[in-house]
Design a protein around this nucleic acid. Sequence first.
DNA 1: CGTAAACTTGACCCTTTTCAAAGCCCGTGG
DNA 2: CCACGGGCTTTGAAAAGGGTCAAGTTTACG
Lengths: 255, 255
Amino acid sequence: MNAPATPAASPVCPHHCDACGLRRTSAFTAVTAEELSFINSIRSGSHSVQAGGILIAEHRPNGRLYTLYAGWAFRYKTLSDGRRQILNFLLPGDLIGLQQEFGDTAMHGVDALTDCNFCVFPTDSLWTLFHAHPRLGYDMTWLAAREEGMVDDNLITTGRRNALERVAMLLMHLHRRLVRLGMVESDGSVLFPINQQHIADALGLSLVHTNKTMRRLSQLGLHEITAGRLKITNPRALGRIAEYYETVQRPVPLL
Amino acid sequence: MNAPATPAASPVCPHHCDACGLRRTSAFTAVTAEELSFINSIRSGSHSVQAGGILIAEHRPNGRLYTLYAGWAFRYKTLSDGRRQILNFLLPGDLIGLQQEFGDTAMHGVDALTDCNFCVFPTDSLWTLFHAHPRLGYDMTWLAAREEGMVDDNLITTGRRNALERVAMLLMHLHRRLVRLGMVESDGSVLFPINQQHIADALGLSLVHTNKTMRRLSQLGLHEITAGRLKITNPRALGRIAEYYETVQRPVPLL
DNA sequence: CGTAAACTTGACCCTTTTCAAAGCCCGTGG
DNA sequence: CCACGGGCTTTGAAAAGGGTCAAGTTTACG
């Protein structure tokens, strides 16, 4: 009973993309057999990182491209005195490393929150991809734009929402993403492997204030977090506080 | 004397991209003659917006793609009670509307700060572009990733920097971008058509506190803003406060 | 069963917000 | 030429939201 609610049946990406557990999900756009075999051909392997480990070190440019196959990770930047800002959380299917590839601006770290498995694509594969399969190239741009959209959302959250609204927003947002991936139990609860420090760092709050705010929210009966699982008890109220709007859940490209 | 320091000689984009004033700048990557004529062929025209006018209304999906040819604009989101967050400022050469094209997440508005002129590309032109010129498709992804990088930077600024650091960061960042575009006078001053409310909205601060902070900075002799022009009087000190790092100024793609 | 990590709580302080009101710069119109 | 009005900048004072410090308390786990 209580089967692990992961989109990917196995925690490690299979040898051939034909057997990709993620793609079976309805969350991702369909690809042709030819596209799939092309993707398989440029994939250079898979890579695992333990919970707490780092996939990409901050400030250290990294030429590879990854797709998160299983697990949770996050992207972040830090200031010299240790202040950390989490830019966004990464869930299965997310593409990682486009920024690095292009170097110019942001340089960020990526750490694993749980044991993670990544599909690895070598540096120059992107280039090949654009030439061989324009449609997939289009998808890459889509993914980049989509991730920017998430950061945009985060920015208005940290910039203009108060603590209560921020936490509400984060909970709603993560919950919705997990549901989209089917990573939800029948009771509506989802795995929630992040601690209050992560939440604080994602929302631009202090640890203490994050704690007090979450306490408030849970005592109002809006959510509960137990044993590493999050359950949103009153989505309407939480959504109202966060000013969170459901958006249509279109399938998303997967590399 | 005192010729307008714009990368584009004319404030309106010419009829044929051959004559594009932006491209003459060293700030942008070179394209082949064939690529240029292709870009010209998909461009559906140009569009002007007066200072203060809106190019894209928030929440209203818009299928077109624009390149800002001349002027300043900004991207923003608002909450229902009017709180506004500026996501980033747009300068000549910036591509606008990728997000909209893909719909999923962010929906933001774009307003003109000065009189602006945009090159317009119809909805489906992106698709054509990826097929006809994979290299340009690659460039689009680059641009998307680069813009995300800017939002990332903004996010750590609003999330983790204090008021003084935030303002310092914004000034350094905008100044650097303008220098890159050659939009700088010999005395090092740049056009600065934004008011303190814009700065407050970009940094997640209140108007009053923004004012007091900028006052402090200018009284320390780090910068001065007069007659709509910004001059950074002490870049070292300002950069140190902001923890701002110069990055290499690679040429950037231009659509 | 013991230790470390993560979560809670209370008290106090400080950065930032809010409110309120002047002052300034400029274009318009009498 | 000067009064008037509107947008933007400045200032002061008071209030508040959130940060920091310093313990506790629980939970996870070896």
